[in-house]
């Protein structure tokens, strides 16, 4: 490994993951049950704040900290699950296109080209809006399916250069089945390419989910989600209520920053071309 592990980002990401997992235990209040009498209480350190609501409350008196803790679940679940789904669809197709090639391989790559020609954001936005908004599961499905093409393309490229290597030729000479060669022998050798792309995609998808939810086509309004909180907060920034937009955005940016820094490290560590320079 060329550089030491990025301890700080790893620590931050781990803290966020733990906070999300244990949200029901950590959250001081029900994230979706507000007390209207206490609506728009500022954070505890601001005059007028209430120590029972450390980060203040939103327009319906719901605890900002609790919404954030539960919102992290949505961000992380969509971020990781959607990317895993893209990998699960794209990797076998890329292996197939690269190793067996032929008409089927050609067809797969043409489809990937079409998919890559349209921005993911636009496809997800249109599909979600026209099918009447979303849920966490639907977001994972839509974003995950739309993201397959990049993995298929990358895996195919990596397989093409692996295909002629001695270990593959040896496996072929031994009469192993194509499936076994693809998944047991080639796949482990192209794993680094997949991992590097995943490390780029997870932060991107976390932002994508937040943006879609902000635009009102992401998770349903009963879900505690960071993007949704910022959307609602936007209506009140002129009346001096800054904590429902500033704070969730800071949490989101910190989460994405940590994953991006880990991703940068992974790219340096796994990309042999970069290691050389």
């Amino acid at each position: 490994m060329p550089k030491r592990l990025p301890w700080f980002p790893i620590f931050v990401l781990l803290a966020f993951v733990l906070a999300a997992v244990f949200a029901p235990l950590l959250a001081p209040h029900d994230p979706m049950q507000g007390d209207l009498m206490l609506s728009q209480t500022p954070p505890a350190w601001v005059p007028g704040g209430d120590p029972a609501y450390p980060l203040g409350t939103d327009e319906q008196g719901r605890d900002v900290l609790s919404i954030l803790l539960f919102g992290l679940r949505v961000s992380l679940a969509v971020g990781f699950a959607a990317v895993l789904l893209s990998v699960a669809i794209g990797t076998p197709l890329g292996l197939l296109a690269g190793y067996t090639g032929g008409r089927l391989g050609e067809l797969i790559m043409r489809l990937a080209d079409i998919q890559l020609a349209v921005p993911t954001f636009l496809v997800a936005l249109v599909v979600l809006a026209l099918t009447g908004g979303g849920s966490v599961l639907k977001l994972i499905l839509v974003i995950g399916v739309v993201g397959w093409a990049n993995y298929a393309r990358l895996v195919r490229g990596a397989v093409l250069s692996e295909r002629e290597r001695e270990y593959v030729l040896a496996a072929e000479a031994l009469g192993m089945s194509r499936g076994r060669i693809m998944f047991r022998h080639i796949l482990p050798n192209v794993l680094s390419v997949i991992l590097v792309q995943m490390s780029v995609d997870v932060p991107r998808v976390i932002l994508l989910e937040a943006t879609l939810s902000f635009l009102g086509v992401g998770v349903s309004i009963e879900t505690p989600a960071i993007g949704l909180m910022i959307q609602r907060g936007l209506d009140y920034i002129y009346s001096g209520v800054w904590w429902t937009t500033v704070l969730p955005g800071l949490v989101l940016a910190t989460l994405v920053l940590a994953t991006n820094l880990i991703g940068d490290w992974m790219r340096d560590a796994f990309d042999p071309r970069r290691r050389a320079t």
Binding site: P203, L207, A210, T211, F214, G227, I230, G233, L234, I237, Y238, G240, W242, T245, V246, G249, L252, A253, V256, L257, N260, L261, D264
Partner: peptide
């Protein structure tokens, strides 16, 4: 630059409004 690609666009817009308009 990592900071720049990590900050949500919609949030940056709102922060600018908060600072420079509000």
């Amino acid at each position: 630059s990592v900071l720049g690609i990590s900050a949500p666009t919609f949030w940056i817009g709102i922060m600018l409004i908060l600072i420079f308009s509000v």
